[in-house]
Simulated assay, not measured.
Amino acid sequence: MADFTHLVIGAGVVGLSIASRLARRGAQLFTQDCIIRQKSYGRSCVSRGSTCCTMSARKLEFPTGTVTEEEHEKLTHMHEKAKLLGVPTTFIPLAKGKEIEPAVRAQVAILESLSTGIVSAHSLMEYLSGELDSHGGDLALYTSVVGIDYSRASNLYNVEFKTGNPDEKQETMSLKFESVINSAGLSAPTISNMLLPEERKLTAYYAKGNYFSYASSRPKTKRLIYPCAHGHTGLGAHLTLDLAGRIRFGPNVQWVLSPNDLVADGSQIDEFHAEVSRYLEGVDKSAMAPDYAGIRPKIYPKEHEGFTDFVIREEEGFPGFVNLLSIESPGLTSSLAIGEYVEGLLYRQ
């Protein structure tokens, strides 16, 4: 007999979204903070991103600097896809773009998104955690998964945990679940490898994103500014605003060996200044300073070519075991939809 219906491993915004969604069905939920042993939820990927989301604010996206036909085609493709999805975007004349954002450089096209903005990731996670609690779910912090086994006889997952502050004496416990949802972010490959056979084991790769703060009052923008993305790894060093209206630039892409490499790399300042100056006039390099960094969870190496999407799947041969891999940007934007999608996988909706 199962101790709980579902185990959600990972208490970031995606894990909490999934857990709160399942809890509203009346399922017995046990949500814990995977192998990172945090004292609070959302202390990994989501707390170190741009916190941009499709909310009620505005974003400009455009090809800048040395404009190519490929960049224009990318924006046109983005606009057409947005229309299919019901997301409001519009091309605006360059003269109007200069009028509303005088410091922005755009030579060929400007695509405006009318429903993109910023959100307090912490407030969202606080709400989801409250939803989980109000529907009877359990959130176990300072708890790590150390082993997972699947019994085909009982169709249950036996999961071993270590609980307690890692700096103090920890206790071991074991619980049984009907399903396990692996939403562990940077630790998701490690969790997956505890269960799947050797030929299906994963290697984790880490793409660091550095952010730089900006202390000058000039140039000033009222919107999020995104250059046309090059390649598939990141969106480029865009301009974003925090909830207080402060400017920061980032993230770039810097491949690293450890998920704990979380200090912003100040040596990247020349690269950042050159990139930002492609689309913004009068950027003062002396006003830029390394701010913070985050890590994108990857399951493909730097040499991998082509677009890689989120991986969300119920693993073959392991009914009820759902893997969520490479959940990076736009994971925050997608978090509520991912919760709905995982519910559909488990309940065949």
Rank of each mutant, 00 (worst) to 15 (best):
V342Y: 11
F249D: 13
S44A: 13
R248F: 14
L280A: 15
S329R: 10
M125G: 01
Q28R: 14
V342R: 11
G320P: 00
F272D: 07
R43A: 07
L325G: 03
A264P: 06
L75W: 05
E61D: 10
V322Q: 08
P259Y: 06
G26L: 06
F318V: 03
E168G: 09
F321L: 04
S113I: 08
H135T: 13
S115G: 05
Q32T: 05
M194C: 01
L345K: 08
A95H: 09
R24A: 11
Q349G: 09
I18M: 12
A207T: 02
R278F: 11
E80V: 06
F161Y: 13
K59C: 15
A106T: 04
V87T: 12
G339A: 08
T163K: 14
K59L: 15
S129A: 11
N252G: 07
I35R: 05
L29V: 12
P166L: 12
E314S: 09
P93Q: 09
V8L: 14
L141K: 02
V46C: 09
Q268W: 02
T51G: 05
L346T: 01
E316I: 09
G250V: 02
N182K: 04
A23Y: 06
V8P: 14
S123N: 10
K39H: 12
P102G: 04
D284K: 15
I110N: 01
S326I: 07
L124N: 00
L124F: 00
K222T: 04
K83V: 13
H77I: 10
K208T: 00
E315W: 09
F318Q: 03
L156F: 04
A244W: 03
P63N: 09
L346H: 03
V263D: 05
E343I: 01
G10T: 11
I110P: 04
N165D: 15
H232I: 03
N155Y: 06
P259M: 06
H232A: 03
I327L: 14
L16S: 12
K176T: 15
R296C: 02
P197N: 08
D3W: 05
E131P: 01
I299R: 10
K74G: 05
T54M: 15
G49V: 00
D270M: 07
S144C: 02
R25G: 04
S329M: 04
G231V: 00
G320S: 04
V8M: 14
L22K: 03
R218N: 08
L132P: 11
L241W: 04
E131T: 01
A244F: 04
P301T: 07
